[in-house]
Design a binder for these strands. Structure first.
Lengths: 250, 250
DNA sequence: CGTTATCTTGAGCAGTGTCAAACTCAGTGG
DNA sequence: CCACTGAGTTTGACACTGCTCAAGATAACG
């Protein structure tokens, strides 16, 4: 049993409800709906397998329970850009329109599990039965858009160092809001190669920047973990700020 | 009267209905709702004035009637990234949640007019009265997300030449779908400086790439116009493909 | 018709990419 | 238990894309 807790792909399965509850206070019916989604049997995805394919129909909405995935786009010559990192508690294929096609491929970066969450899709359009949950879901969509905009800012106008710093701040913030970063240490299952595809740099350069950050005592990375030692320094050099999408406190 | 037609900021005011009708067949009630939005008195925005401010509340949803605007993010030292170009027919502040805050600043790049389109916001959550219009609106939101992903791909993994080529293909596609690019010529009111902030390059470099494209006979730019002379070449080098967000034909 | 913004060009340089090789380390199978 | 393997990381040398600075040429605009 100790070994189960120690397994690197272990994730508490409440990431989804943790995130949504942090966006809006939920009532008990809403909480138990989320629980039932979280306790449902999962579908497992092997490393490098696809959860969604660009241009292909989205069968039904899924919620990531454990593991990390990446939304990616490809170019013909093999160049690859990670659009967004998908963490436990994120929802895939949440589209308000009919017969949606995926706008990007989603690949499992680690062993990944996801559950059917098709109720959430319906909630987007008609939240009359679960008003707070509907609101939380919409806020989460707005947050996700905020993160897309941040990715554009990073890639377009920040230096290599700033991009990585900004990404790490964002990952920490997102993991914390799902209770997945105990004691300030977060799992970091991405290889430097994948990291490079996120921040639009070469592997070699990513490696050099990480060395630099380590030398400065700002972070500790390796063995699947990331510890941010000087968060203020990172936040300052990246000009990171967390998403604010509504004027309500929740 | 000839001079009115010749003015560079002249735009037919049906861009919104042209775009939405291209996404889904609308019935007459829906069409006339759009007409009434389009014929409403406009609010004018001077060059460089703000339609929305990052972090500030979004008063109400607006539809751009004429002129071009840019969604931008800023860094403290003055660096600026254009997240997206906002064209006539685009809708601003379309958020499904309560009391939304803007996730980016929107600045008028040319003289711009916009009308109050708050009905559309309500339609996002409850489209029972205007089902096709609701569907069209949701499709337009999905398309907009597709364009954001394209922007990420461009900035992260494409060369300077490819970025500009891709952007031009996208602009042409968007303008055509609103009936704003007669005879294959589109208005191009962006300065090279703004263009640089879109594609994440320096002005000087943008200028050089434009020279190159002109020399190759691929485009003609200047005096506020863009003519794409060899669209196949542009599409091929940029690997451009138009958004496909639903399996329905409309 | 001056004035200012925008565009253009050149020269030199910085940041990041490429290539290639060595090193680490977790698995794997003998 | 140990050698082997292969993915991932690290390092160095060098190339190149795109940036900066600065000045001049055009075009827009009042």
């Amino acid at each position: 049993l100790m070994s189960i807790l120690a397994r690197s792909d272990f994730q508490p399965r409440q990431a989804l409800s943790a995130r949504l509850a942090s966006l809006k206070v939920l009532d008990s019916a809403e909480t138990s709906l989320l629980r039932s989604i979280e306790e449902r049997p999962v579908h497992s995805y092997r490393v490098n397998s696809r959860l969604l394919t660009e241009g292909a129909p989205i069968g039904f909405t899924q919620a990531l329970m454990s593991g990390w995935a990446c939304r990616v786009r490809h170019l013909a010559d093999g160049r690859r850009q990670v659009i967004a990192i998908v963490l436990p508690g994120d929802v895939l294929g949440l589209c308000p329109h009919e017969r949606p096609l995926s706008t990007a491929t989603v690949t499992a970066t680690t062993l990944t599990t996801a559950t059917d969450a098709r109720e959430l899709s319906a909630l987007l359009n008609d939240a009359s039965d679960f008003p707070n949950l509907g609101a939380a879901l919409r806020l989460s969509v707005a947050e996700d858009e905020h993160y897309l905009l941040s990715q554009i800012m990073r890639l377009g106008r920040q230096s290599a160092y700033e991009r990585i710093a900004h990404l790490f701040c964002e990952l920490k913030y997102r993991m914390v809001s799902r209770d997945l970063a105990p004691a300030g240490v977060l799992p970091m299952p991405l290889t430097q190669e994948t990291l490079a595809d996120v921040v639009g740099l070469s592997v070699v350069h990513v490696n050099r920047i990480l060395q630099q950050m380590r030398a400065e005592g700002v972070i500790e990375v390796g063995r699947g973990r990331l510890r941010i030692q000087d968060e203020q320094a990172l936040i300052a050099s990246a000009e990171f700020s967390p998403p604010k999408v509504t004027a309500y406190k929740s």
